[in-house]
Write a protein that binds this DNA or RNA. Structure first.
Length: 440
DNA sequence: TCTGGGGTCCTAGGACCC
DNA sequence: TCTGGGGTCCTAGGACCC
């Protein structure tokens, strides 16, 4: 917790719905719901007019339609939301270089890194009001709610206190008094499950929480969450505003209107998703070692199966092959006949692929492979010895183990090429046979 | 036909290593 | 034979957030 109220949290009001109303005057003043419009869609954002009918984020669209049949139901135009978001984030960066976006419609700003003459309450209040006016002007009328306080936690709580189109500055020293009467669910990380555990222990408000010892909290909710709650109950929050975060995983998933029962169709879906994930990895210059599939059954039971390669990949073929192998493994051990409602593919254990390659080149002299014929009887793949080929050309085995072989590809024209990984029994991978030369 | 999609973080157990 | 202890990696599941 800082001495000054120098953390600002900005939240655009009913963001997606507001962009729609801005761009389509016929929707202004009317209930608008943006979200999944399919049979299993959920509400992403409801305009304030729709909220009056009880429509909420995360509610099923079916439920929303029954509560507010006359609302406009829209699937969403993400390019428009992204464009508006970029304008707002740009304005925030004019205030301070230290901006941490949480999503398209929300960000923290560290005012202590900006160029303010001082960080007293009147100064930050004036800045926040100016900022809100600039947001409305630059975005064609979108409104923002802003909270300013001495920590991220309290700034976020504050931005929620006077929604929509409000500003709350919490004077330093008054944080704990503000929080005490509030329900424990204001604390980030306290969702339904944790709230229920706390409720059973008679803890309903932040004041109740403050009265509980650290040991008791750890016993109730575990080490990490317990220590976190103990601090946040006292408004004790030193988390810094962090501008750049590196992605840790990339994934694609889909929920289908009718449950899937055909394994062949599921494989086709995984193939497309694997391609999409690989495309996103490549666009961001990333690659990852762990491929995960996610399978949600008709009864909402959710299963994950993952497999980790010896080195990172961004190859659609590799990701898709592993995803399919994980699915058939799962299908062999689990009854999927009741139907699958969601299927997804993700890659984690991300590495910066380009850098990794440079390091590899700089630190390891890659020996010319000794080309040899591999006796049929030999099992497995021998790093540095076995020469293989697939559609990428010829390469030599770089590493193997855990059912996976890693291959470094190289051509005479381009020199050392990418490293890719394959399951050891991958039929697409063949040992290289030296050409048969006719005797002269 | 309750319950999206894209993420993050934590826990817990087993393998493996020193 | 009654067999430690810590650290890291991997896998699976779950809670949570926007």
């Amino acid at each position: 917790m800082r001495v000054h109220a120098s953390v600002l949290h900005l939240d655009l009001d009913a963001f997606f719905a507001s962009v729609e109303q801005r761009d389509k005057p016929s929707l202004r003043g009317k209930p608008v719901v943006v979200g999944g419009v399919g049979g299993r869609g959920v509400v992403s954002t409801a305009s304030y007019e729709a909220r009056r009918f009880g429509v909420r984020s995360a509610m099923s669209t079916r439920e929303a339609r029954s509560r507010c049949p006359h609302a406009a139901y829209l699937g969403g135009r993400f390019h428009a939301y992204r464009a508006a978001s970029e304008i707002v984030m740009g304005l925030l960066r004019e205030v301070s270089p230290l901006v941490e976006p949480l999503s398209l419609d929300e960000a923290f700003v560290d005012l202590a890194a900006g160029g303010l003459p001082d960080l007293e309450v009147p100064t930050v209040t004036e800045l926040a009001e100016e900022l809100r006016a600039r947001v409305a002007e630059a975005t064609g009328g979108l409104t923002a709610s802003v909270g300013v306080a001495s920590s991220k936690f309290v700034a976020k709580v504050a931005s929620d206190l006077d929604k929509p189109d409000g500003l709350v500055v919490v004077p330093p020293g008054t944080e704990a008094d503000l929080l005490r009467p509030m329900r424990v669910t204001v604390i980030p990380g306290v969702g339904p499950a944790t709230a229920e555990r706390l409720r059973r222990a008679g803890i309903h408000t932040v004041a109740d929480l403050e009265a509980v010892s650290l040991e008791e909290l750890v016993r109730l909710v575990g080490r990490a969450q317990g220590t976190g709650l103990f601090a946040l109950a006292r408004a004790d929050d030193d988390r810094p505003v962090v501008a750049e975060r590196e992605a840790k995983s990339v994934s694609v998933e889909g929920t289908y209107d009718t449950d899937l029962t055909d394994l062949g169709l599921m494989e086709q879906i995984l193939t497309r998703q694997g391609r999409d994930v690989a495309g996103r990895l490549r666009r961001h210059g990333l690659s990852g070692r762990t491929v995960t599939i996610k399978v949600r059954l008709h009864d909402f039971t959710t299963l994950n199966r993952s497999s980790t390669l010896p080195s990172p990949t961004d190859s659609p073929a590799t990701i898709t092959r592993l995803a399919k192998a994980l699915l058939s493994e799962l299908a062999a051990s689990t009854d999927l006949s009741g139907g699958v409602r969601l299927l997804g593919v993700g890659v984690s254990g991300l590495a910066d692929w380009i850098q990794e390659d440079l390091f590899g080149e700089a630190e390891e002299e890659v020996p010319e492979p000794e080309i040899e014929t591999v006796p049929e009887t030999r099992r497995g793949w021998v790093p540095g010895m076995d020469v293989v080929h697939d559609t990428h050309g010829r390469g030599w085995v770089w590493g193997s183990g855990r059912g996976v072989v890693t291959v470094r590809f190289e051509t005479a024209e381009t020199g050392p090429g990418p490293v890719r990984s394959f399951p050891t029994d991958d039929p697409a991978l063949h040992r290289w046979e030296p050409p048969v030369t006719e005797p002269a």
